[in-house]
Amino acid sequence: MKSPIIDQVGVEERVARFNTRSIKKESKVQGLKIAINMIDLTTLEGKDTVGKVRQLCYKAQHLHVDIPGIPTAAAVCVYPTFVKLAKQELGNSGVKVASVATAFPSGQSTLAVKIADTKFAVDSGADEVDMVISRGEFLSGNYNFVFDEIAEIKSACGNARLKVILETGELATLDNVRRASEIAMRAGADFIKTSTGKIQPAATQPVTLVMLEAIRDYYYETGIKIGMKPAGGISTAKVALQYLVMVRETLGNDWLNNQYFRFGASSLANDILMQLAKEASGVYQGGDYFSKD
C-alpha cells in the first residue's frame, strides 16, 4: 500500500490560513452549538469512581440548564468497567457510551486480551469502542500486524462503531500519521482518532489536517465516509471553531455533525458554555458559574 509523502511546511501554512477566518456573533453561536454537540465528555483516570462517571453522564445530558437550546454532548467516554453504569445513567437520552479498550492507553498486551477487553466493553453496552494501535509494531514497520489487529478488533466490535487511536504524539512524522490513517481506514475503522490524551503532544491542527485529508482521499477512492476525532489538548471555544473551519473546508458539510466528527475533551465543554453565556448576556463569564469537572 502506498501512502503519500506529506509536505509539512505546506500543512502548517494551510492551518495558519484556517486560523485567520473570523467567526462572530450569530455564526459563532451556531458554530459553538455544533461543536458542543460533538464533544465526547471523557474521564479516563485511574482515580475514576462511580460518582465521577455518574456526574459526567448527568453533565452530558444537561450541559447548562441556564441557557435554553443547548444540545447534549455526543458521548461519554469511559473505561470498560464503567460502561454498564454509563449506559444505565444515559438511558435513552441519545448520548452514546464510548469505551476505550485494547489495553488502553499503551496497547501493550496480547491480541487475546485486547479482544476480550473489547468484547467486555461491547457486551456491557458500549455504542462505540476507542482502540489504540500498536505503535511499537507500526514504528518497526510491521504494518500488516497493525492492520490485522485493527481488523480483528473490528470484528469483535459487532455493531459498535470503532474509533482507532493512532497516538500521533508517538508517531514522530506526518508521513507516519498519514500511513497509519490509511492502514486504520482500510482495516475497518469507523473513526480515526489522534490521541489517547496521555501523551504530549496530543491533538494538533497539522496532524488533524493530515488525517482529514486522508479521510477525503479515501472517500474519493471508495465512497466511504470515515469519521474524525481529535482528542486531548483542545480546551478553548476559539480553537474548537478553528477545527470546524478545517473540517468544513477539507471535507464539507457532511462531516459537520457528531456522526462524523468528535472532540475528545472535557474542559472544552465549559469554555464553550462560557462563550455561549457571554453571547447571551453580553457579560464575560467566570468558572464559578459552571459545573466543576
Binding site: 457579560v283 464575560y284 463569564q285 467566570g286 468558572g287 464559578d288 458559574y289
Partner: peptide
Amino acid sequence: SHMSSHKDV
C-alpha cells in the same frame, strides 16, 4: 463597564 461586569473578577 467590562471591568466591573466581568464575572471572573
